[in-house]
Design a protein around this nucleic acid. Sequence first.
DNA 1: GAATTGAACTAACGGACGTTAGTATACTCC
DNA 2: GGAGTATACTAACGTCCGTTAGTTCAATTC
Lengths: 213, 213
Amino acid sequence: MSDQAVADNLPPASTAERILDAAEDLFAERGYSATSLGDVADRVGIRSPSLYNHFRNKEALYRAVMARLVTDFSGPIAELRAGPITHERVLEWLETIVRQHHANPNLARLLQHAALSGGPGTSDLIEQLFRPMFDSSRSFEDEPGPVLGDAALQPWAVMAFNNLVMSYITMAPMYRDLLGQDPFSECAMEQQLKLVKTLLQAVFEYRGHHLLS
Amino acid sequence: MSDQAVADNLPPASTAERILDAAEDLFAERGYSATSLGDVADRVGIRSPSLYNHFRNKEALYRAVMARLVTDFSGPIAELRAGPITHERVLEWLETIVRQHHANPNLARLLQHAALSGGPGTSDLIEQLFRPMFDSSRSFEDEPGPVLGDAALQPWAVMAFNNLVMSYITMAPMYRDLLGQDPFSECAMEQQLKLVKTLLQAVFEYRGHHLLS
DNA sequence: GAATTGAACTAACGGACGTTAGTATACTCC
DNA sequence: GGAGTATACTAACGTCCGTTAGTTCAATTC
């Protein structure tokens, strides 16, 4: 039983779960092809051939890691889509995903690796996570015109706010070096949350689109 | 002489330059450790040991790629810092870097790999590219108070707009799948440019910071 | 024209990789 | 208590990797 499990009074994690945990961290840090099964096994405390008692091969392990992350992260957008799209509920959604990515940075990292380098199941991953944000062309119920004064810009804006949240995670070393504080500390996260919410608020209130061509 | 050079009436690229070109593309796509010298050599059309006639080893090649990218991309921020910081000049800087990253997506990709996985010289790369945005605490000369109503938020906002520009590049496959168009086409780039400029404009005009805690 | 240099090549090394085969051990079920 | 299953192990394979050594050939220099 792991120390973590003892401290938290959790049931001991199965070997398969411990493999998934280790593999998630390593795939997220290094990407698919740069992660070796030997390193995964080392982290779990077993030999690499023993991994094959739990997963068919490296690709199956990777897909299992992705599947678990997708289920973990599919809640907030489903919840938003279950009700009316209002400024307030979108702000709540934004806050939720900021906190969620902060609590587990691995999805953002793994997805960024996949977007850069590909790997098994990359397009499925993208579809499952982000299609729900686009496939129905719903717009704000409490807003008269299109956001930012241009309806065509709305999908771009959705992507942009997602990228804003995720790139804070994937660029965390930059924040550490340049801002001189731990980007995963509680107060740094509150700063980031304040920033993205303020930005979204600024977009909601923006009516000066005539100033740009 | 390459076909490209003939068509453009350029002098033939030296072998070292062709190696740098190939290595830049591959390091940007796959990251440092997932890129093999064999693949670089294949792309250039030589055998991998021949690379050692031009670069001491893999790490030296990688550092040379980074150095060339840094010099290519250090112009705009230096130009901005050479004059007064005004809304208009920051908007121009934003437009410049959007176009620059669009013209060569490799810096954003390589930097994202470095931020995720590390690699030789990562902290130097970050320092050289981004320190100029922070080391002098200059603020807007045409703005009375702090942007977004909170001076502490300004470095976060600078990082955020950078990430916005770069994550459009590093997340390009997502844009292709979800928005159904080539993210590097001219018109997609104009859309992205319009979005980030509008966002910055919205920030400049935002005065409703009292609405958030 | 001989000597030097630069840049390509082949061959080979030691190590790490994903994967398979075969084996040993401990728990579960009748 | 014996059979069966689950899960760990060691040993080994073929492949790819970065790198070194040594060779060849063409261009440059004296």
